[in-house]
């Protein structure tokens, strides 16, 4: 971790609340997400993890509370606001077009033009460079369609797409949920690479082993609140389970 105490964190949530009708999905959430580190968000189903990342992505603007970006208060009223700040979200369904190739998917909506025409050459170079910077070497040709890729390769393309769009903070929803062992390792390596390159990463995962393997910090949510934030070194599986189920723990790291 390179951020010092004086620097404001990349993203800071203060007292963020969100209700859907009578349901209080988020209650007074405080959370810091620093740059150049992986912050994992743990919690049982319905704890509010997805709602929280949707607030950060601008999809559900919070009812109450403050969002600070590098210390400045910001309003996130839509996905475009979040994207303009440099927040990119990789959803579980990845949102890739199977019939388009890797380059077309990575640039979708932000194509580079040259005399009014698609500048395939420049986009292909940039896509290839981003993939090689992230050490994604398994995909072969960047001109193959996404339909021909494995689950882990698709996840890598979705993450590379987020990075390509000059993101500072990459939010990921269950990036390893549908993957086998080897592919999971590949994606977790990629997550570490992102942090090493200076991106802030906020990661939702159900998989405790993955979480402990990849995170620098762990935030635990329960019933719409962040009940605990601690360094990876102060957490193990039993402590996290305690926090997720009861909101407190008496254990020490074994």
């Amino acid at each position: 971790m390179t951020a010092t105490l004086e620097d404001p964190p990349l993203l800071r949530l203060r007292g963020v609340s969100k209700s859907f009708g009578p349901v209080r999905a988020l209650a007074d959430v405080d959370l810091d997400v620093p740059a150049a580190a992986v912050t994992a968000l743990a919690g049982d189903n319905g704890a509010g993890k997805s709602t929280l990342i949707k607030c950060i992505a601008g999809i559900h603007p919070p009812d109450d509370g403050e969002i600070l970006w590098e210390g400045r208060p910001v309003q996130l009223r839509g996905p475009a606001d979040a994207a303009a700040l440099g927040i990119q979200t990789v959803y579980q369904d990845l949102a890739l077009c199977d019939n388009l190739d890797i380059v077309q998917n990575m640039f979708l909506g932000r194509e580079r033009l040259r005399r009014g025409q698609l500048d395939d050459v420049s986009m292909e170079q940039a896509a290839a460079r981003t993939l090689s910077d992230l050490a994604v070497t398994t995909v072969g040709s960047v001109r193959q369609t996404v339909a021909s890729l494995s689950g882990g390769q698709r996840q890598s393309v979705a993450i590379a797409k987020a990075v390509l769009w000059e993101s500072r903070l990459v939010v990921m929803d269950e990036p390893t949920a549908a993957l086998g062992v080897a592919q999971t390792t590949m994606v977790l390596d990629l997550v570490r690479t992102l942090a090493r390159r200076g991106h802030g990463v906020l990661l939702i995962t159900h998989n405790m082993l993955n979480l402990l393997e990849v995170a620098d910090r762990v935030a635990v949510m329960r019933q719409g609140r962040v009940v605990d934030v601690r360094d990876r070194s102060d957490a193990d599986e039993r402590i996290l389970v305690d926090l997720m189920t009861t909101g407190r723990t008496d254990r020490e790291v074994a």
Partner: peptide
Amino acid sequence: GNAEAARRAGI
């Protein structure tokens, strides 16, 4: 190919 992905890309 994927209308939802296209929508999220701002198309």
